[in-house]
Write a protein that binds this DNA or RNA. Structure first.
Lengths: 184, 184
DNA sequence: TGAGCTATGTTTAGAGCTAAACGTACCAGT
DNA sequence: ACTGGTACGTTTAGCTCTAAACATAGCTCA
C-alpha cells in the first residue's frame, strides 16, 4: 500500500498498540454522534494486520537477501510452473501494482541477474520475463522462509477459526469486487 | 506498507481479479509440495482487502480535497476531543508511521492552514499541534464521507457475520501483538 | 558545574510507487 | 499503401515514506 503504509481514513491506523478499533468507534460516537461507525471494527483491524504481516515479512526477507517487491515478481514466475516465463503484461495482471512499477521491478531484478528479458516470439511488442537459475534458487529459499514464518503466525487461531476467518474474508472480498470495480 | 502498496511475499498480491487465494495455495502445493500453505488464505485476502479499502478511500478523499495522510492526522486530533490538541510524540504513538513522517505531515498540514504548532508550556522539547477552524471543518466533512462510504461497503456481510469477522480479526491481531512485538 | 543519558522533533538521502507522457508494433478499414 | 486505433512496455516527474543522522531540552549523579 505503499500507500502502503499507514494513514488511514477516519479510523485507519492510530495506536498500533494503544486503543482498540472498538475504542476508536466509541470515540467517534462520543465526538460526533450519529456517524456510522459499524465499519471501523472491520476496516481498522484489516489495516493493522496488513501492516503487521508486511513488516514481519520484510524482516524475514531482509535476512534472506531479497525485498518484498522482488519476491512478488519472482514468486509469480515460479508459481506459474515451467518454463517460469511470463509476459510483462501478464505480470502486471497478476500483481497489485501498475505497469510502470512492474517495468521497474523487472529492470532491478534483471540488473541483479534474477530474471532475463527477451522479445516474445509471438510478435507484438510483448516482452517475456524468465527466471534465471539464480532467481530460481533465491525464490525457492525465500518462499520457504516466508510461508514457514506466516504459517506460525496464524496458529493463534484454531484450524476451525482459521477456516471461518478465511471464508468470511473471501466473501467480503468477492462482494467488494462486484461493488467497487465491476471493471476489474 | 509503504509497501503500501503492493507486492506481497510468497502470496501477496497477485491477480487482483484473477486467481483466488485458494488457487494460489494450490499452485504452491503443485509446484513445491510440502510447503505450508495454510496461512495463504488468510494473509492474501487481508492484503487485498487493505488495498481495496485504501484505493476506495483515496477516491472519496480526492473528491473532498484532502489526502489520506492528512486526514489521518486531523482525525486523530479531532477524535481526541477539545481542545483538539496533541503533542507530536502522542501523534506518532497513535499512528502507524514514523516520527519523521509525522513531522512532515504536520509541516504540510500547517502550510495548508489546517493545524498550528506551538511549544508545549509543560516544557521539554515537546510541540503541541492543534486543529485550526479550517482543519476542523475539513475533518468534519471528510470523516462523514469516509465513514458513510465504508459503512456501505461492508453491507455485503450480514450484521451477524460482521460481528463474527470483527471478533476473529481482533483475536488474531491481539495474538500477533504478543507474538511479534512484545515491545510494542 | 558539567558529563552523560534520555526524550523529542526535524532534516536528509534514498527507495519504490503512481500517473501520465512517450515510443513502438500490429491491425483494421478504406 | 495510408490513417487511426489499440495494445504494450518504458520513462519521467513528483510524492510520501523509512532509516539514520542531527539538534536540542531537561534530568541525574558525581
Amino acid at each position: 500500500m505503499t500507500e502502503a503504509g499507514a494513514g488511514g481514513g477516519a479510523r485507519s491506523a492510530e495506536e498500533s498498540a494503544g486503543r482498540s478499533a472498538a475504542a476508536i468507534a466509541a470515540a467517534w460516537q462520543r465526538e460526533r454522534p450519529g456517524v456510522p461507525t459499524d465499519s471501523i471494527e472491520i476496516v481498522t483491524p484489516i489495516w493493522r494486520l496488513a501492516k503487521l504481516f508486511a513488516d514481519d515479512r520484510n524482516r524475514v526477507l531482509r535476512a534472506a537477501g531479497i525485498d518484498a517487491a522482488t519476491l512478488d515478481l519472482l514468486a509469480v514466475l515460479r508459481r506459474s510452473g515451467p518454463p517460469y516465463e511470463l509476459t510483462t503484461r501478464e505480470l502486471t495482471r497478476r500483481t497489485l501494482v501498475t505497469a510502470g512499477a512492474v517495468s521497474q521491478r523487472v529492470a532491478r531484478a534483471e540488473r541483479e541477474g534474477l530474471v532475463r528479458r527477451s522479445p516474445d516470439p509471438a510478435g507484438g511488442r510483448a516482452v517475456l520475463v524468465a527466471l534465471t537459475p539464480d532467481g530460481h534458487a533465491l525464490v525457492e529459499r525465500s518462499v520457504d522462509a516466508v510461508l514457514g514464518r506466516e504459517s506460525d503466525l496464524v496458529t493463534g487461531l484454531s484450524p476451525a477459526e482459521r477456516g471461518q476467518l478465511a471464508g468470511l474474508l473471501d466473501r467480503l472480498l468477492t462482494d467488494l469486487h462486484g461493488r467497487i470495480g465491476p471493471s476489474d
